[in-house]
Every structure is written in structure tokens, then in C-alpha cells.
Simulated scan of single mutants.
Amino acid sequence: MNSLLAGSLSLLLSLPAFAAPSDAFTQRDLAPPIVGVNGHTVKFRATKWTMPGVDSATAWFTANGKTFPLFSVDVGADGHPDWLSPDKKTLLLDPVIFGMLSLENGEEKLESQQHCVVISMGTGCVLADRWATFCVGQWKGNQWVSEDGDVLTPTLETTSPKDLLKYASSIEPAQSRAESIESSLNFLSPESYMACHPPAQNVRVYNDLGFFLAEGGNDELALKFYRGVEAVGKRTVLMLNIADSLWRLDRKDEAQRYYSQYRDAMSADGKTQKIPQRVVERSAIQGMKN
């Protein structure tokens, strides 16, 4: 995928880059959803944006009882039933990225950039990103042919976590490294990215990406990847990383529970002497409360 809005367009960096929508706006579902393979759906939710002048919906994927946003918090989207492939495995959507353009006089102007993306209705993975006019076309069999004659056979094109980590590892300082990871993800939600590259196959890489994000000041996004790894199975170092991010986000009661789990796991492995002092202090607070 290409970098989005490089240079001039600030994507509202005051908002948590990949946070789930909360007090930023209120929502209601728009009907009907687009129904794909195995009954998986994409729904569009009406949104009251904090940005003046924005009128758009957000796109949500549901499969097997789980729902997650396809795109990050500042991205609107639209789609149509005829953009669903005949086998119902692939859907085209046109996300719109909103941001504020800083003018020379110091004022800010709302700007937007439109794309055409390819969604796997099996997983909720954003497979590929194309220019906006690519969504003007038709399905011929299960291949999309744009009005300009460009042909798409749906395949995974998103950057792998391994390549993302390799690139980020070469960047200093920590804040720039974290920003490079966010930029590489472009407008995808972390849930959609992990649908493309499952945590079970990328345990160490996602833990390291989360650590780099947290080290660079983005604990909210780091936790998204940590939670993905946690769902695969608890790991000692992961418990410490989750605890540290929760602590910095002032979710201290939850953080203390993870510190205690980390301390207990290290003690059980005979590694008590390697437990950081902050863990002892913070988990002890939880122990006093109990």
C-alpha cells in the first residue's frame, strides 16, 4: 500500500490513531448490511463526527459473533451490494480518509482522500488498496474489471508483520519508529490487519511491534496487538508488556493484575532475581488491596 496523505495532511493526530470509537462520536447501524460468504457481514454505521463538515459512515465487519471496524477511527466508508463478488468472498469498499490541512495563514481546512479497497468476506482482511476510480467497473466471474480495463484477482497485498518489523527496527528514535509503524498500517484497523496476518502465526513479531509502539508513546495501539497475541496464549514477557502499557494509560487496577501474573510466572520459573523492581512495587500495591 502507498503512504497516505504524506506531508501536508495531518490525520488528526490528537485522536488515538486506532482507538475503537467511543466519545469521539455516537453511532447507529444503517440497514441493510452486505452479506457475504458464510453469512459474514459488512455494516455501515451512521456517525456523528467531531470534525465539522464530515458526513460519512464507518464500516464494521462481523463473523462468528465478533465485530470489528475495518478502518481506523478517522476513516469513513461506503459500499454497494453490486460490489460483492458473485461467490460472495470479496467486497470492494471506498474508504475516505479525513484530515485537516494546515494553511499558510494558520487556519485549518478539512480535506479528504478517497480509495478503493478489496475486502475478504471470509476474514475481514483488507487485502489490497487501489485508487478511487478502480471501484468503477464490474465483476466478470470473480475478477473485478475496472472501467479503465484494469483487472483484479483478489490476493493478499498488505505488508507482512515480519517486513513491517524489519523496516521499523532500522529507525531511530523510538517515537519515529512508532510513527513509521502507524504510517505503514495506513488507514487499516489493527483488527483488520491481524485478520490478514493472524497472531497465531506472528506471536513474536506482534509482541515486538507492540513494544516498539509502546516505547514510542502509542500504548493504545500497542495494546491492540498485545491483545491479539494474548488470545493465542499467555506468555510471560507479554504479561509485562501489557501491564506497562496499561499502567501508562492510567488503567492501574488492571495493570496490577498483569504485574502480579508476571511476577508469579517468573517466580515459578526460578527467575525471581530477574523481576524488575517496578513489578515488585506495583504488584505489591494490588496485593495490599486484596
Rank of each mutant, 00 (worst) to 15 (best):
L238S: 05
F68N: 01
Q273P: 09
F25D: 02
E104K: 06
A59L: 03
E254W: 00
N290I: 09
K66M: 12
R248A: 04
F61C: 04
S85H: 04
K89T: 05
D269K: 12
S102N: 12
L238M: 13
S85Y: 02
T41D: 09
Q277E: 15
D55P: 06
T236R: 07
K166T: 15
E281I: 14
Q27G: 08
L103D: 05
L9A: 04
K109V: 07
L165I: 10
N218Q: 11
A243Q: 00
V279H: 03
A31E: 14
T41C: 10
G137W: 02
L93A: 05
S56D: 09
M100D: 08
C196T: 00
D82Y: 11
K271P: 05
P33E: 06
N207K: 07
M121I: 02
P69L: 06
L223D: 00
E157C: 09
G65N: 13
V96N: 06
E104D: 15
S14K: 12
L101V: 03
M121G: 00
D150M: 14
L240K: 04
T133G: 07
A231S: 13
A255D: 01
G99W: 02
C135N: 04
K274L: 13
T155W: 07
P154W: 03
E191I: 01
S183D: 12
A268L: 15
R130T: 12
F25W: 14
D78F: 06
R28E: 13
